[in-house]
């Protein structure tokens, strides 16, 4: 009996994290929307392994949302995007020029929009980096 409780206790983190992963995976399969972004702080929007980005609603195509209105309040004011340092260096010119968009998985059901990709010239940043090698 004690051994069973012991094993169950150990599985608590596995179960919680597994359930959380499933929830996030299902959230990432919602409809995709693209939001134009710009560097949060032009002096230092790359910090270590993150990239700080802020939605630019003036450049965003609002026709992809219901009633052609961008639901700004449903999005955060700033986002961080995990990226390797050497990759962020290559993308800095594009971010400065405002040619990047964040792709979100978006649903109106009260879920927070989830970042699914960083688009550079309409392509995934990984694809873009491979082409510009």
């Amino acid at each position: 009996m004690k051994n069973k409780i012991f094993a169950i206790l150990l599985f608590v983190p596995v179960i919680v994290l597994g359930a959380y992963m499933i929830k996030l995976i299902s959230m990432s399969r919602f409809e995709k929307v693209e939001v134009a972004v710009q560097g949060y702080d032009p002096k230092d929007f790359f910090s270590g392994y993150y990239m700080y980005l802020r939605p630019d609603w003036e450049k965003t195509d609002c026709s992809q949302f219901a009633d052609n209105i961008c639901p700004q309040e449903e999005f955060e004011q700033t986002y961080t995007f995990y990226i390797k340092r050497e990759q962020s260096d290559k993308l800095s010119a594009k971010v400065n020029a405002g040619d990047v968009k964040l792709q979100f998985s978006y649903s109106k059901g009260g879920f927070k929009p989830l970042i699914t990709d960083l688009l550079v010239d309409g392509k995934s940043f990984l694809e873009y980096l491979q082409q510009t090698k």
Binding site: L10, P13, L17, Y20, M21, L24, S28, Y50, E76, Y79, T80, F81, Y82, L114, I115, T116
Partner: peptide, 21 residues
């Protein structure tokens, strides 16, 4: 090691789903 692994997996989830750090 398991305690650290849990922390690592939380970090991994944040990284994969681009959650706010």
């Amino acid at each position: 090691i398991y305690a650290f692994l849990i922390a690592g997996v939380i970090g991994l989830i944040g990284q994969v789903f681009q959650l706010h750090s």
